[in-house]
Simulated assay, not measured.
Amino acid sequence: MTTATGSRWKLYRRTDWRLSQIRRIIAEVDSLGGDRLFLQYPTQGYGWSLTPHLLCAYYSILRKARFTVVLHEFSGLSKKARFAATLMIRTAYEVIFTNSFEQKQAARIDKSIIQRSRVVKIASNIPVAAMVPPLSERKYDLGYFGHIRPRKGLEAFLSAITQIRKQTSGVACVLIGQVPAGFKSFAESIVAQCEALGVEVKLGLSDSDAAETLANVKAVYLPFPDGVSERRGTAMAALANGAMVLTTTGEFTTPALRAAVVDIPSLDAATRILEALQTPHEELALKQAAAQHFLHVEIPSNWETVASAYLE
Score class of each variant (00 low, 15 high):
residue 1 M to D: 03
residue 1 M to Q: 03
residue 3 T to D: 09
residue 4 A to H: 05
residue 4 A to S: 11
residue 7 S to G: 05
residue 7 S to R: 05
residue 14 R to G: 05
residue 19 L to C: 08
residue 21 Q to M: 10
residue 22 I to F: 02
residue 22 I to V: 07
residue 23 R to S: 02
residue 24 R to D: 05
residue 27 A to F: 02
residue 27 A to I: 02
residue 29 V to L: 10
residue 30 D to P: 00
residue 31 S to Q: 09
residue 32 L to G: 01
residue 33 G to R: 00
residue 34 G to S: 03
residue 36 R to E: 12
residue 38 F to L: 11
residue 38 F to P: 00
residue 41 Y to A: 05
residue 41 Y to H: 11
residue 41 Y to S: 11
residue 46 Y to H: 06
residue 48 W to A: 15
residue 52 P to V: 11
residue 52 P to S: 09
residue 60 S to H: 06
residue 62 L to S: 05
residue 64 K to T: 08
residue 66 R to E: 15
residue 68 T to I: 07
residue 69 V to E: 12
residue 75 S to F: 02
residue 75 S to M: 02
residue 75 S to T: 15
residue 80 K to L: 07
residue 82 R to W: 05
residue 82 R to L: 06
residue 88 M to I: 03
residue 88 M to Y: 01
residue 92 A to Y: 04
residue 96 I to Q: 01
residue 97 F to M: 05
residue 102 E to G: 07
residue 109 I to Q: 08
residue 111 K to F: 12
residue 113 I to W: 07
residue 114 I to E: 06
residue 120 V to A: 15
residue 123 A to P: 13
residue 124 S to D: 13
residue 129 A to L: 09
residue 129 A to G: 07
residue 129 A to P: 07
residue 131 M to S: 15
residue 148 I to N: 05
residue 148 I to S: 06
residue 154 L to P: 03
residue 157 F to L: 03
residue 159 S to R: 14
residue 161 I to E: 06
residue 166 K to R: 14
residue 167 Q to H: 11
residue 167 Q to Y: 07
residue 167 Q to V: 13
residue 169 S to K: 10
residue 169 S to H: 13
residue 170 G to A: 15
residue 170 G to P: 05
residue 178 Q to E: 13
residue 180 P to A: 11
residue 183 F to A: 14
residue 191 V to E: 07
residue 192 A to Q: 11
residue 192 A to E: 12
residue 195 E to I: 04
residue 196 A to E: 15
residue 199 V to P: 08
residue 203 L to G: 07
residue 204 G to P: 04
residue 205 L to I: 09
residue 206 S to C: 06
residue 211 A to M: 01
residue 211 A to I: 03
residue 218 K to C: 01
residue 222 L to E: 09
residue 223 P to S: 00
residue 226 D to C: 00
residue 227 G to K: 00
residue 233 G to I: 03
residue 235 A to G: 10
residue 237 A to L: 00
residue 240 A to W: 03
residue 240 A to T: 01
residue 242 G to V: 08
residue 245 V to H: 10
residue 245 V to I: 00
residue 248 T to S: 04
residue 248 T to H: 03
residue 250 G to Q: 01
residue 252 F to P: 00
residue 259 A to K: 15
residue 264 I to L: 08
residue 264 I to M: 09
residue 271 T to W: 08
residue 273 I to E: 02
residue 273 I to T: 03
residue 274 L to V: 14
residue 282 E to M: 04
residue 283 E to S: 04
residue 287 K to P: 07
residue 288 Q to M: 13
residue 288 Q to T: 14
residue 289 A to W: 11
residue 293 H to M: 13
residue 294 F to V: 02
residue 294 F to W: 14
residue 294 F to P: 02
residue 297 V to E: 12
residue 299 I to Q: 09
residue 300 P to K: 09
residue 301 S to L: 08
residue 303 W to L: 10
residue 304 E to S: 10
residue 304 E to H: 05
residue 305 T to P: 06
residue 305 T to Y: 14
residue 307 A to M: 11
residue 309 A to E: 15
residue 310 Y to E: 14
